[in-house]
Design a protein around this nucleic acid. Sequence first.
RNA 1: GGCCCGUUCGUCUAGUGGACUAGGACGCCAGGUUUUCAUCCUGGAAACAGGGGUUCAAUGCCCCUACGGGCUACCA
Length: 506
Amino acid sequence: MKKNVRVRFAPSPTGPLHIGGVRTALYNYLFAKKHGGKFILRIEDTDRNRFVEGAKEYIEESLEWCGIKIDESTNAGGNFGPYIQSERKDIYKKYINELIESGNAYYAFDTSDELDTLRKQYELEKKVFVYNSETRKRLKNSLTLSKEEVNTKLTNENFVVRFKIPENEQLIMNDVIRGEILINTNTLDDKILFKSDGMPTYHLANIIDDHLMEISHVIRGEEWLPSMPLHVLLYKAFGWENNMPEFAHLPLLLKPTGNGKLSKRDGDKLGFPVFPLFWKAPNGDTASGYKENGYFPDAFINFLSLLGWNSGTEQEIFSMEELIQAFSLEKVNKSGARFDHDKAKWFNNQYLQKKSDLELANLFSEELKEKGISSNIGYITEIVSLIKERAGFVNELWSQSFFFFEKPTEYDKKIIKKRWKEGIGEKLKNIVLIIDNLSNFSRDNIHDSVIKYIEDNELNMGQIMNSMRVSLVGSASGPDLFRIIELLGKQETIDRINIAIEKVNK
RNA sequence: GGCCCGUUCGUCUAGUGGACUAGGACGCCAGGUUUUCAUCCUGGAAACAGGGGUUCAAUGCCCCUACGGGCUACCA
């Protein structure tokens, strides 16, 4: 890599950042860090109508939660600011004039209504209206009108500035991921570069900013591929083609089933979050996030990194540092990736299993506090070590271990019917006696004593064990029964069995 | 409709002309472990979109078809 690597993530603040955007940011970040470069956050808010309060902050918070560190932005600073396009209006004005003077752009006075009518007319004739080298000769613009007319209109009317697409040129472009892309400029239309409200469109602002901010690689979603020719042509028109950035168009994230790409509007409709963090829109609408759903940021990032990229090895679990080391644009796939929620869950489970018991106990302890339960961290750590392999998320820890903190309020009816046979109460009473007489209350000792009682009296193992379990935890499933007894303690165990005998036999 | 991009198990993917009896992972199924459920272990089913070329040889290169995706706004 000869030049300094500088990449940007350039979302527009029209709402929360969705996971496709997070992945784009991630790939930019990984690429930058791999090559010792800078990761820049630029806010593209040239469409004031779609601006949503809080979106910019949401984007910044999301990247932070993900562990994606911003080198330059409004908050992080940097020498190439401002990093928000609405504050760069004057810059764009200067450059659009340059383009008009060089004959690469022109004023157009057609109203939206006029163009709409035209489009409809064409449609009736089964043709498609394109503002191009052919039609612009018949429309109201500075190429067809006299100087005087143009000047009058410029002062009295709304106008836009359009790019004058060169006629019949074969463009050969290169994409790092897709290779050569060929297109004839006759298929392109004279896109608007400057809107009547005095703001540039995305295309203009994007090229100017990327140039001024010395962006070396444009890594963005595939939805931008069709506008790549326009962008390349703009670089040429400005005379910047010699230090044009390299382009890499990422495959899109697709819906798990059905058609189309994953979009913000999918919200929670698909049965999983599409946003990193919880979002509340100014109008009150809310959408859930991965964070609040119990995902660890490193698991979330690991999962996302593999949607469209693969290291070429069989490794699947990557820390951020490992991702940076392994990442390369050449190994990014070309085709869209369907989102798979099951695999996301699996990743979180993997990360949860890797965490230490103490770390999980601290997280669990916070949840317990919210439920009004406070317990000492040593006890919680013991419980966590017993149940963590049964959970995929921190928020599943409670359902696996609630019985350590409160007595069961009901007993699984199916198990009672199947296992709580005639006379079981008497046998459980004997077990209570055995337990009560234990001086060494260790798991193994409890185990040996109870098993000995069952064997000596030739009792049904399943019946006794399940009856004990249901008495203590309310259901037939759970971790090792004797560890539960050990952790509950002698008195609590005895109480619970006695309560069960009384309640069930009634 | 037009333009552009893509197509390996259900899903994410490995594969860069001979190493392919096409590998891994998720999910699924079966067996084992377990007092139980979960975990865990072992095993299994499961794919090169179709058709033409090029080549001694094609998952891989070329062409066509089909299918999927994106774009086609004074949105980004």
